[in-house]
Design a protein around this nucleic acid. Sequence first.
DNA 1: AACCAAATCACCCTTTCGGGTGAAGGTTTT
DNA 2: AAAACCTTCACCCGAAAGGGTGATTTGGTT
Lengths: 140, 140
Amino acid sequence: MKRTIFLYGLALAALITLLKFLEYRLFVRDLSMEFYIGIIALMFTVLGVWVGLKLTRKKTIIINPNFQFDESRLEKYGISKREYEVLELMSKGHSNQEIADKLFVSLNTVKTHSSNLFLKLEAKRRTQAIQRAKELALIP
Amino acid sequence: MKRTIFLYGLALAALITLLKFLEYRLFVRDLSMEFYIGIIALMFTVLGVWVGLKLTRKKTIIINPNFQFDESRLEKYGISKREYEVLELMSKGHSNQEIADKLFVSLNTVKTHSSNLFLKLEAKRRTQAIQRAKELALIP
DNA sequence: AACCAAATCACCCTTTCGGGTGAAGGTTTT
DNA sequence: AAAACCTTCACCCGAAAGGGTGATTTGGTT
């Protein structure tokens, strides 16, 4: 982060130097105003894109490839064991009926669990719930 | 994506209008050159940051950092570009209607694409298709 | 004993999904 | 030109999913 800011300062300094040089050329010679403005706009756009990239790249790494189950995370979101079992099967692509068969409960029960899951994970659909759960490292 | 580019164009147009206005003020009145340059630099930096953010936001959602997109895999399963776009949005938890809105096509079109996807991925449900696609390293 | 959270199930109703089929327009390949 | 493929869209219909509400049982806590 500090390095990014340092590099940003460096780039800024370089830009200003270049600008001053261009400014000199502008007033002494034949460079048109439009060209000058264009250069400035281009340079600062590039600079802005670069800064934007630098500042957001970090968020990419937040999530985990090597999954480690952590029960405290479940408590954090108030997800019970049974709900978690439903969530796991759900993420593997099973239908509610299949989940009901595997857990030896009725279809209605699975629906209740999944409804509660959606509330706790702030999801509207099961695919969204799965996505959320992965982001929260609840499931691999 | 198309929307981003469109908005970018719009923002650019607005900026240029503002620039022309400032340019007028500069030559007719009392605005200093430095001030003018500063405004331009600032505006285009902001624009650049915004564009940078827009272009990288997608990568923020990636769960598996060691994912490498490989087009040959898609060909292996006969998945077209459009179908792949649907698959991506699907895996992010969007409904068919939401996907249709994002891709600027009708709900029926999305259904067709997803049906074809299920055939090609040998899946019965969208959750299963997502699971399969991840196993096949088609999506992160 | 009283209380509470979890788990179970039911019923009703709406929305979303998914399968099947057909079709039109466009591009690429043969 | 014909064939093959992609993309787009439509209609119908049944299956699955999801929301809301209420009820019962059970195990653990107070």
